[in-house]
Design a binder for these strands. Structure first.
Lengths: 169, 169
DNA sequence: AATGACATGTAAAGAGTTACATGATTCA
DNA sequence: TGAATCATGTAACTCTTTACATGTCATT
């Protein structure tokens, strides 16, 4: 449902076709959001079947025709409902992806420190990417500050654990 | 692979059977980790097929027989590899679940503040749950501090945004 | 002449989850 | 007697992704 919420939210601001939506996601949300081309097309299809969005065909020059989608009234009320649900509900982002930290003690602290440093660099890389996007994206600043906040939390945690390990070592 | 890493890490500390693993996850990791019973049984099956773990049948009294799994040498080296990969790689936990915050501006600030407060309470609830578990779980303290750090980041962000909205209002 | 952008989609595969199925045992 | 615990699993379903398919147009 989150993906539908995202698409509805985008179509609410302006009519768009699939290719355009994909481009936007790749360019501006790729870091934070996982939503691939075929999924977009599929979701657009089912949302149209459900009457959440409507489409018209459009052609510019001799380029392939596009299917341009617009949100309907039904879609708008779905959006309103989904939005409230999503904001009010905090779904803890599964910590499975980071399960390795549970077993940090399986490594000697020297190697652990090296691996954590590697991880830190990747986090830093994401922070930098975010900062670069910052100018371009309009309306997505909330997402950016949110993402920033959590990346900083990750960095702080890494530094703390690294310090602990260093002091033992 | 994260799920396999978790299971290997558990079996590394002690031999366990499926039911026991499920119990542990439900009791101690349910908040942070999503890994359901049938998945556990399936993963145990495939890991045995791959020679990562071995099993023996055991029966206590008239209870149903259990299949008790132990990690093999092959499994141990898989664990070592998976662990390093997992720690060194930071995979940003998909922000899709929180996509609603992008569209906060679709609500009037009064309602937004209410919804954010609801969300905050849910986060607080998780913090409390974590604190209750804190005594029980051994070896999972890293996970707890990690989870804590990120929940605090979530709370700080919520407070910040709420303040912003309040000051406008 | 070839590559990449433009544009839409389908098919197959993968990973997990929910719901279902089974059956003995213990406790209230 | 009925419910909960112990214990293992299968089947069907959902959601998403990767890989495939197609064809024009613009650029190098």
């Amino acid at each position: 449902m989150e993906r539908k919420l995202l698409l509805l939210g985008m179509l609410r601001k302006q009519e768009m076709h699939g290719y355009q939506i994909n481009e936007f996601i790749d360019a501006h949300l790729g870091i934070s959001v996982q939503l691939k081309k075929p999924t977009v097309y599929k979701l657009l299809g089912t949302m149209e079947d459900d009457g959440w969005i409507s489409s018209r065909e459009e052609q510019e020059g001799n380029y392939p025709p596009r299917r341009v989608y617009a949100i309907t009234e039904v879609g708008e009320s779905s959006f309103q409902r989904l939005l409230r649900d999503n904001i009010a509900a905090y779904q803890p982002s599964s910590y499975l992806g980071n399960i390795g930290i549970v077993f940090l003690d399986a490594l000697d602290s020297e190697e652990a420190i090296i691996l954590l440093a590697e991880r830190r660099q990747k986090v830093m890389g994401l922070v930098r990417e975010l900062n670069n996007h910052e100018e371009l994206v309009e309306g997505f600043s909330m997402m950016l500050s949110y993402h920033h906040q959590h990346l900083n939390a990750e960095m702080d945690w890494l530094d703390e654990v690294t310090d602990q390990l260093s002091s033992i070592h």
